[in-house]
Design a protein around this nucleic acid. Structure first.
Lengths: 159, 159
DNA sequence: TTACATGTTAAAGTGCACTTTAAGTCAAGG
DNA sequence: CCTTGACTTAAAGTGCACTTTAACATGTAA
């Protein structure tokens, strides 16, 4: 039930202002723009993925750059990196290490993981394909077929 | 540190006994034979995947058939089924439904899941491949590239 | 007798990425 | 003045498949 919000620019200047450059957003607005929940943004901050923003009356105030950080997080997640790995990406290198080099270091490892993952999923796909052709009357028969197979030959219960 | 165990047949007759058919195993032995931890076996029982075995002095006593049940569980897990789905496989059908039909019903659904999963992993593999070719000096540059891209064309930060 | 290995239970812990809840602050609007 | 909505925090909850822990029972060996 996404209710309508009257959501005016809360702090700083917005799009239609004279020099329409330096914008400031509340956490709610940042969340809307990044299509995230505010809780996720706070979580990233607490996990060290997002720099602590300045505060106005105790409330977080973000600049446009926050959106770029969130984009990096999303990009990394889209490549299969965990929160811990993203933290490593951000803070696990000498500060003058270029992004290109950081990505290469982490992506090389992850690429192997990902290929393993693809292989596992494909193996499961194969097993499913054979299960669909199963003709066992009872599940115990399937079990017997698998148990018997382990010591002798290799065949999935298709009988 | 898997210490040596003297593990004699605790109950019932073992392999070398006259009519070497009806065997009984303790949970520890079943676990060894199935290459599982005893806690996993108790967990399967509590989850309704394994029939409650008879007891001797309060202790669980298993027959060879338990190994077949565990084989079915393993087979299903190898096809990507969750514990809840395996429970459905075992108890979610009219009791005279043949195994073949049970598998087909569940495997058809799961096959789609699995293909989605393969596609996702392959998409991640692609992203990783592009990240390895990234030449951004800073991560913010990657972020800017992704943020800018969203409204305009589609290109992963290779600059 | 003592010690040990193995078993029993219920309940809590694990790892991951968040979400939800509870209790409170604060400014604007009616 | 009071409500509303958005924000703040710390802590607990979620879902999954188990594992670990704590406290106790019991049969066998030294």
């Amino acid at each position: 039930m996404a209710r309508r919000k009257r959501e005016q620019e809360p702090i700083g200047r917005g799009v239609g202002t004279p020099s329409a450059t330096r914008q400031s957003w509340s956490i709610g607005e940042l969340a809307r723009r990044a299509d995230l929940q505010t809780s996720a943004i706070r979580y990233y901050e607490s996990a060290g993925l997002l720099p602590e923003p300045r505060r106005y009356n105790g409330r977080r105030v973000y600049e446009a750059s926050a959106l770029e950080w969130l984009a990096v997080i999303r990009l990394a997640q889209g490549a299969g990196f965990s929160i811990a790995e993203i933290r490593e990406l951000l803070h696990g290198f000498h500060s003058d290490t270029p992004a290109s080099q950081r990505w290469r270091a982490l992506a090389a490892r992850k690429l192997e993981d990902m290929r393993r993952r693809i292989d596992e999923a494909r193996a499961m796909e194969q097993v499913l394909g054979r299960l669909i052709q199963c003709e066992c009357p009872t599940l115990q028969d399937c079990g017997r077929a698998v148990v018997g197979e382990s010591a002798s030959e290799s065949e999935i219960p298709a009988r």
